[in-house]
Design a protein around this nucleic acid. Structure first.
Length: 419
RNA sequence: GUGGGUGUAGCUCAGUCGGUUAGAGCGCCAGGUUGUGGCCCUGGAGGUCGCCGGUUCGAACCCGGUCACUCACCCCA
């Protein structure tokens, strides 16, 4: 084998692509019911878009982006997440003019240059949704409810919804100061990582897994205890609405988001079944991001879920209808069968045939292997009679029927296999 | 970027103390009645033993290097 996929990027082979399609189609259908429309943005964007939206000192921007320069010296980046592009598009095309709130979803590949491991690859796929232009708790809860409903629909279990508020520009700076001071007072007890992080990204020390840090920070001040009045009201509204919809959540004031743009609501859907990775989906509110890109002062909230991770946890894929096999014997029969297969296919039936002249035995074996419930056969006698033999693979019964496309289509639609 | 584990057929894996032509199961292809599946039987295709170098009369096996995959750290979807 000479040329292979590059590290961290994999093929989705025919045996698994049906599962991907199932999940994607269920998402589209449900999101549609919630009033969301798809938005498709380019996979490649100007590097600046991500640097400015995600934050210069985030891990994603600092070390995980696939960035390269074009011949003319522009710096481009393969998107590491979806929200930045949606916001860019919202501003560029003045989508605020479409109405008070834009409900959008997207789906597709994202790229981060990390060391691959279980549940983490360099090209991965996300399905995400955003509400742009609505700042109410209802918007947050609608999007969480949609996410939660989707995960339930495809049979993902063993998950929990974690929720917190990250405050906003009015209350977060003062809180961060308080947290820094607290960390400073315990600096001797912190791990090496946290000793450094207390300056660069103090929130991060709150979810450190090192035992010593957990103890040292057990009574650290929490953002949720220091929210300003508007943030507190908003957060209370979110919790109340979630409860009203019967969506179970656990308050986790130590949730840390990897991207700088989040304010107020932040949430995560977690599991303990994905190896070291525990996030299935995550999201939150990002009021201010749109304005910072020159758009209207519109608030926004959204989520993204990792498709590979969801695929890992979802129920088995529902079985697809098996094809009908059209077997033939003899050159002339083959030509007749070739034409019939074409017309049946135009009628929407999935028809398998042998593309080479092979024995009836071999064709039957193939049909068996494919799980066909019905096999159509054309040989010398059927050719002469203008009929087709229909075999029921379960009972083994055979009968002859007129070689009439409409009649066959009607019949196959009723049969256990076919359209 | 750092550490651990693993690399033999499409897949899962055997392979003795270093020994002659590298195996099994599954899968794939064909055949076992003249136009008929499953079970069974027979045959066939398919290998740079990850790669490079070293030790040796001789290496899948021992040594060094390297690459890939994988798990974990870090971080996240």
């Amino acid at each position: 084998m000479s040329i292979t996929t590059i590290r961290g990027m994999s093929d989705v082979l025919p045996d698994e692509s049906g599962r991907w399609r199932w999940v994607e189609e269920r998402a589209r259908a449900l999101f549609h019911a919630f009033g969301y429309d798809e938005i498709r943005t380019p996979i490649l964007e100007r590097t600046e878009l991500f640097v400015r939206s995600l934050g210069e000192s985030t891990d994603v921007v600092e070390k995980e982006m696939y960035t390269f320069a074009t011949g003319s010296g522009e710096s481009l980046t393969l998107r590491p997440e979806g929200t930045a592009s949606v916001v860019r598009s919202f501003v560029q095309h003045a989508l605020a003019q479409r109405g008070p709130a834009n409900r959008l979803y997207y789906l597709g590949p994202m790229f981060r240059h990390e060391r691959p491991q279980k549940g983490r690859s360099r090209q991965f796929h996300q399905i995400g949704a955003e509400v742009l232009g609505a700042g109410s708790p209802e918007a947050d809860v609608e999007i969480i409810a949609m996410l939660w409903a989707f995960l339930g629909e495809i049979g993902v279990d063993g998950i929990q919804l974690e929720l917190t508020s990250l405050g906003d520009a009015a209350c977060r700076p003062a809180y961060l100061e308080r947290l820094r001071n607290f960390a400073e007072s315990r600096v001797g007890e912190l791990c090496e990582n946290c000793t450094r992080r207390r300056l660069t990204n103090p929130l991060r020390i709150l979810d450190c897994k090192v035992e010593g840090c957990r103890k040292a920070l057990a009574d650290a001040p929490l953002m949720t205890e220091h929210l300003c009045e508007p943030c507190r009201t908003h957060h209370g509204g979110v919790e109340r609405l979630l409860a009203a919809l019967g969506i179970p959540f656990v308050a986790n004031p130590r949730i840390v988001r990897g991207l700088d743009y989040y304010v107020r609501t932040a949430f995560e859907v977690t599991t303990d079944r994905l190896g070291a990775q525990n996030a299935v989906a995550g999201g939150g509110r990002y009021d201010g991001l749109i304005a910072s890109f020159g758009g209207p002062d519109a608030p926004g909230v959204g989520f993204a879920m990792g498709l590979e991770r969801v695929l890992e946890l979802a129920a088995p894929t529902p079985a697809a209808a098996p094809p009908v096999f059209l077997a033939s014997h003899g050159d002339e029969s083959r030509r007749a069968a070739f034409g019939l297969a074409h017309r049946l296919r135009l009628g929407g039936v999935r028809v398998e045939t042998s593309l080479e002249p092979t024995s009836m035995k071999s064709q039957m074996r193939r049909a068996q292997k494919l799980g066909c419930a019905t096999v159509l056969m054309i040989g010398e006698s059927e050719l002469a009679a203008g009929t087709v033999r229909i075999k029921d693979m379960t009972s083994g019964a055979e009968e002859d029927a007129a070689r009439d496309v409409d009649a066959l289509l009607a019949r196959l639609a009723r049969a256990p296999s076919g359209a």
